[in-house]
């Protein structure tokens, strides 16, 4: 990524294509200490009993994937992700490839922040999770 002075409204982040497997989903649920009530994140049958189409990815995992787009873009630059918000529109299913897109939508020279739109799409370009992020740049 460039410095604050070099980025522009309209600049693109990504896209980042990721395949998320059921094993990764289960591993995340285990690591996060999601216990007995987390069947929807670990087992297709348990998820279907809840009316879901099959296992789904935990919301926090989707949030982590969206933030990865931003933190990868920041890289080793002198900036940091200070805020992120998400809206969960559609359950995200594992064993699918998701694509994460981002755009810089605003720049505030007073506090040296950039506002970024981010969203996750499935293979059919349906937006599953949307969000916004704020990145602050040090001088």
């Amino acid at each position: 990524m460039n410095s604050f002075e070099e980025i522009n409204i309209g600049d693109t982040l990504g896209p980042l294509e990721l395949f998320v497997s059921k094993d990764q989903c289960r591993a995340y649920a285990r690591t996060m200490g999601m216990g007995e009530g987390a069947g929807r994140f670990t087992d297709d049958e348990a998820a279907r009993k809840e009316g879901l189409p099959g296992m789904i990815i935990p919301g926090n995992m989707s949030l982590g994937l969206l933030s990865k787009l931003v933190t990868d873009w920041i890289g080793s630059s002198n900036a940091w992700l200070t805020r992120m918000s998400t809206t969960y529109r559609v359950p995200v299913q594992p064993d699918h490839t998701v694509t994460i897109h981002g755009f810089i939508t605003n720049k505030n020279p007073e506090d040296r922040t950039a506002e970024i739109d981010v969203w996750m799409e499935n293979e059919e370009s349906e937006r599953l999770v949307t969000g916004t992020a704020t990145v602050e740049f040090r001088k």
Partner: peptide, 14 residues
């Protein structure tokens, strides 16, 4: 109009 991303197939090791 974006190109459709092919569906991948994963192997389960549960």
């Amino acid at each position: 109009r974006r190109k459709t991303v092919p569906h991948a197939v994963a192997m389960e090791t549960r």
